[in-house]
Design a binder for these strands. Structure first.
Lengths: 135, 135
DNA sequence: TTCAAATAAGACTAAATTAGTCGTATATCA
DNA sequence: TGATATACGACTAATTTAGTCTTATTTGAA
């Protein structure tokens, strides 16, 4: 419970790698996978997510790869988490697709409001931690 | 990801119920299950966990049930979470049974230390939220 | 003393989520 | 045109979480 997914772990590691090797020329998914010994296809997808939110630029074709678009100090853990995870909410009824008016459990909403506050604070913790702090 | 388990949700709800009905006489698992429409066997186990850590007293036999041992303001969410969840750590290598010296991933430990700090802060958020605030 | 109602707890099954793989298409450099 | 990349959807495997079943024990009251 409350654990980060491998997806998020790999995303943080990949972002870190990109930040470290940010020497102009791009880095391939294969390189990251081999260097950190994590599944290639998995990192590749995470990097594709990064490209979609324009955190990185992707260069296709031979000699292609990925380059960070922003400075490590301008990227926070919440940026990384929210690009690779659809939901990172404490409860189901906090999730985007949840029906806000009704709750699965009687009385659930009594516990929901304080939890929403905790959630907000957890997010701000992740927002306060930048990629630079992880290098 | 980062979601509370049903176990924890039910635990918070059960604790809340006990706090509300804390009128001397005890409350049964059946009563909580029916009132909140949550699985009886599941709540029962959560209450047994509470009894083990002496957060509640359990009274066996007919006319038995559970009573809160502490005031709602003296019980925090972290008390509840840590009694019903073996682990609530962000990563595997933070878990109690983890081998602290070696890490599954090369370079993982570079991301581990900042995450441990985040973990510590998350725990303190849960510690700052008391059962009383949820009544 | 026996029945009903409760806790206690381990073993098990089912459901859901997460992790990881496969296959195929497309882009681009040399 | 071949080698080497990204892009991405569909799929399978593994793990975790949720929930159930069963049986034992305790205790109050008829």
């Amino acid at each position: 419970m409350l654990k980060l997914s491998k997806r998020t772990e790999y995303a943080i590691m990949a972002a870190r790698y990109l930040a470290l090797k940010n020497s102009g020329n791009c880095v391939t998914a294969k390189e990251i996978a081999e260097d950190y010994q994590i599944p290639y296809q998995f990192v590749a997808k995470v990097l594709q997510d990064f490209a979609r939110t324009e955190m990185v630029s992707s260069i296709q074709g031979s000699k292609g790869g990925y380059v960070l678009n922003r400075l490590p100090e301008e990227i926070s853990l919440i940026d990384i988490i929210s690009t690779v995870e659809e939901n990172h909410q404490l409860t189901e009824c906090m999730q985007e697709d949840a029906n806000k008016t009704s709750c699965e459990h009687i009385d659930c909403c009594k516990i929901r409001d304080p939890l929403i506050e905790v959630q907000r604070k957890i997010d701000s913790l992740f927002a306060q931690t930048s990629l630079k702090q992880i290098l």
